[in-house]
């Protein structure tokens, strides 16, 4: 038996995996569009640290002269992005999942500790539910970014019909710059997200597909009942038994047969000295650890 938590509801898995290719298409087609007037750079005065984007980058990805193609993709997939995001937010609100994702009072403070922990500068992490404080801020932030992309996008798509929105965002040219900056932030989010998913490991990734988070097996040190004095302990070593099945404390929640199933095997063998010998006795002598 495995202990599992139903981590990600099916709806959230759908929203997530629809969003992934759709955002990829939006960023790709956005680059095809941006190329036609690629004016943004990092730098000051005449000094440019990083041009968005270097010619070699365009060339490698075959971006030049594809403005029309970019627009035709962008203004189709925008609907999927908007509708998927809109239903996702509605789902969060009505299912109550928002309580697990939106930051709470402690999130800002806790998120620093999470970051310190992830950078190996701190050992313990604050208590968390489904997501840690940094995840709450990141996953809520990315919703806000998505809304920002829709609004800045709409105001450069139809700047006259939505002139009030464009004015609110600082005018047409500013809205275009904001739309670009949000895209850069999306790609940074994506990079960090991928690194964290890789570091978190298979079980975490699997939970985004199956929905189930499989909890780790608890390891206990078992003192076999057949050995009850120090000399015997020295003679036979101090067996450490890894219980490979989940350990379940005996209480009325689970039927007795569940316990029996788990405690069978190695544990019964302990009473049999030959079995201990074959498994645990160090031929070089007693092993007291």
């Amino acid at each position: 038996m495995k202990r599992v938590i139903k981590k990600h509801p099916l709806a959230i898995r759908w929203f997530h995996w629809i969003n992934f290719p759709v955002i990829a298409v939006m960023i790709w087609s956005g680059m095809l569009i941006y190329w036609a007037n690629d004016i943004y750079r990092l730098g000051w005065g005449n000094k440019t640290v990083l041009k968005f984007f270097p010619d070699s980058f365009y060339k490698a990805l075959h971006i030049p002269f594809r403005l029309a193609e970019g627009m035709s993709l962008h203004f189709v997939f925008m609907w999927i992005f908007a509708v998927n995001g809109f239903i996702y937010v509605l789902y969060l609100l009505f299912s109550g999942e928002w309580r697990l994702i939106f930051p709470n009072k402690k999130s800002l403070k806790d998120s620093f500790q999470v970051v310190l922990h992830d950078l190996h500068l701190r050992k313990s992490v604050p208590d968390q539910k489904k997501y840690n404080a940094a995840q709450r801020i990141a996953y809520t932030g990315v919703i806000v970014m998505g809304l920002g992309s829709l609004l800045t996008g709409l105001s450069i798509y139809k700047p006259i019909q939505f002139h009030g929105l464009a004015a609110l965002l600082g005018g047409y040219e500013w809205a275009r710059a904001e739309h670009f900056i949000l895209t850069i932030l999306f790609t940074l989010f994506f990079v960090v997200h991928i690194v964290q998913v890789i570091l978190a490991g298979w079980n975490n990734f699997r939970s985004m597909v199956t929905g189930l988070d499989v909890l780790p097996v608890k390891e206990i040190i078992f003192q076999p009942t057949g050995i009850n004095n120090e000399s015997e302990s020295k003679q036979f070593g101090n067996p450490v038994i890894n219980i490979t099945e989940p350990f379940i404390p005996k209480d009325e929640t689970y039927p007795d047969n569940a316990i029996l199933q788990i405690t069978s095997g190695d544990v019964t063998g302990v009473k049999d000295e030959s079995s201990i010998e074959s498994k645990n006795v160090n031929p070089q002598g007693p092993n007291i650890s």
Binding site: K2, R3, L100, T210, L212
Partner: peptide, 29 residues
């Protein structure tokens, strides 16, 4: 929201569910 609710699933059931989920996932991809 009660998140930390553990349930027990047999290994076989878990393996089947994982296989089904990943099959659907890869097919959709």
């Amino acid at each position: 929201m009660d998140y930390k609710e553990e349930i027990l699933v047999s290994e076989k059931k878990l393996r089947n569910k994982t296989i089904i989920s990943f099959t659907v996932f890869i097919l959709l991809l």
